[in-house]
Design a protein around this nucleic acid. Structure first.
Lengths: 211, 211
DNA sequence: TAGATTGTTAATCGATTAACAATC
DNA sequence: TAGATTGTTAATCGATTAACAATC
């Protein structure tokens, strides 16, 4: 059954989990499908369908129990508490991501950074940056499976190869080079430049039909 | 007709354009639908359908003319050369994005940064950071329509409101708070934490079925 | 001509939503 | 009971792909 969880569904489940955590911290105990639908921008029916698919039941009048949902989603999505990632390329972007506050919500940790040359990090950050030569050994020793790629465009392709050779199974790619998912390494590309261009296009289009 | 350009299609067109630019710089003159399909990860038929929809013809045996495609896509997508964006929140992420090399490909420019307090930037960067109070005036004076939001989570919501009040029509949101698109302000959310969690899930799932 | 590629239609696939019966 | 919400089915919507005729 879990094999049927598609990408969109997993994204929704991750978002549900985050919202449930927030609701819980506000002291809520129950939530309705339309609350969750509003929060992540889908129809209430889809929320119910998602939970139905996962055999997570609610109460016909009382909605869903937040603690229960939270716990079950944790089981399905897996605890990422002890998951560790590495960052290849500790330039501006890599360093910024390493210090990204939003990561504190997600229950994973940046284990180390790697770069061709030593990088000066603030003392406050308990993160070490190693030379690239140590990447494979480090990943093996620490069972690292997921990496963020934040190197300059020119070395994106060779860095990609290096990560695969180091046993990395998933890469969040911030370089403008569009990398391809292969059977044993999943790629998610985030191309900020394309995102901005896309936004410009949508805004200009939107302007024509709007006020 | 242009009103029918949906989000996925626009993304593909932006990617085609980037690839065509690269091919042109390599001295290529012709390209086939399967080349472009491979490059962006879709079926060749979809590439042909896209061009067909835009009335961009190819040659039954000789493929598509790169110069022509490039030029036409430029007309459809619009020149973003003189487009300017601003960045609200010049912490680590904002500062890193301001210096993002990948932006050099995209033909737009970061006009200014804004923050609650002065930020020290490298001299090499010809970018000024202004106090938040000047945001609305600056956006008006310079007709800024698109912004990157990179403030801390705690002030994401109020910053969002500030941007809308400053006449911003499109926001690329890097905070973990999921903002909602409204009729006169388009939001694209990039939640790095969720992206990483998603990658972990996919990798673990993938591991079960793989080697 | 033979071969290759476009252009286009029909089929497929899949996700989302609308609607409503079930029921607490 | 009346009202509200779940759970589920059927309908809708839309994007992608397969397949092939047209044709250079």
């Amino acid at each position: 059954m879990r094999g049927t969880l598609n990408k969109e569904l997993v994204i929704r489940l991750l978002k549900y989990r985050r919202i449930l955590t927030q609701l819980k911290s506000l002291g809520f105990e129950k939530v309705f499908s339309n609350n969750l639908g509003d929060a992540i921008g889908v129809a209430p029916a889809l929320v119910r369908k998602d939970f139905s698919l996962l055999v997570l039941g609610g109460n016909k009048r009382g909605g869903y129990n937040i603690d229960y949902l939270s716990e079950q989603l944790g089981l399905i999505l897996g605890k990422t508490n002890e998951q560790k990632i590495i960052i290849l390329g500790m330039g501006k972007i890599g360093t910024a991501i390493a210090q990204y506050k939003g990561f504190l919500q997600g229950d994973f940790e940046v284990a180390a950074g790697f770069d061709v040359r030593p990088v000066g990090l603030p003392e406050s950050l308990s993160l070490k940056v190693y030379p690239i030569e140590e990447l494979a050994a480090f990943c093996n020793a620490n069972s690292i499976q997921v990496a963020i790629l934040a190197v300059p465009e020119e070395v994106a392709t060779e860095s990609h190869k290096l990560l695969k050779d180091s046993g990395i199974r998933g890469i969040l790619n911030f370089t403008p080079v569009e990398l391809k998912t292969t059977p044993n390494c999943i790629i998610h590309n985030i191309n900020i430049g394309v995102e901005i261009e896309n936004l410009f296009f949508q805004v200009i289009r939107n302007g024509l039909s709007g006020a």
